[in-house]
Nucleic acid binder design. Sequence first.
DNA 1: TCAGTGATTAGG
DNA 2: CTAATCACTGAG
Length: 172
Amino acid sequence: MYEKLTKEFFLRDVLEVAPDLLGKYLVINQKKGGITRYLITEVEAYRGEEDKACHASKGRTKRTEIMYHEGGKIYVYLVYGMYWMLNIVTGEKDNPQAVLIRGVKNFQGPGILSRKFKINGSFYGEDLSDSNRIWIENSYKKSDFYTAPRIGINYAGDEWKNKSWRFVLKDE
DNA sequence: TCAGTGATTAGG
DNA sequence: CTAATCACTGAG
C-alpha cells in the first residue's frame, strides 16, 4: 500500500517539491465514487513575492493568505469565472509559494481536472496531511521529467515568463 | 484565433 | 460603488 505524504514533504522549497510530485498520486475521496488515485504528470512552481507570475507578488491579500502559511495546505481560486485551479502550498511559514497541479494521467489541463474532481472553494486551506477527501500518496517509481516555461503568464514580464518552472513527466 | 464568465483587486 | 484583470477551455 502507498503511504500518504506527510507535512515534511511540503516544507521544502517549491523548486524541490514541484518535480518531486511528478509520478506520485493525487488521491480524491468522493462520497459517491469512492477513492480514486491519479498519477501526477505536470506541475508548475510559483515562488515568492518577487516572482511576478505568482499571485503573492501583489502582496498578502485574503486570497493569497494561505500561501503565507507553511507547506502542505491547498490553495484554490477561480479563474476566468469558470475554472478552479488546484495548488499545493509549499515552504516555510511567511514564504509564499505554491505548486499548480496542471495535469494528471488521462486528464491534462488544470481546469478540467478540477471539474472532474469537483474541486471548489471549499478546499481552500485544506490540510493535505490531515484530510479525508484529498491527499497525496507516495510512489517508488523513478520519474523522468523535462522542464519548460510556465503557461498563461504573459503578463509577468520576460524574466519570470521565461523561467523553466513547469515540470512534465516523460512517457505518459 | 476568441469569447464566456464571475471572483478578486485597486481605486474613487 | 466602478472597472480591469485573469496560472483556462472549447468551438470555429
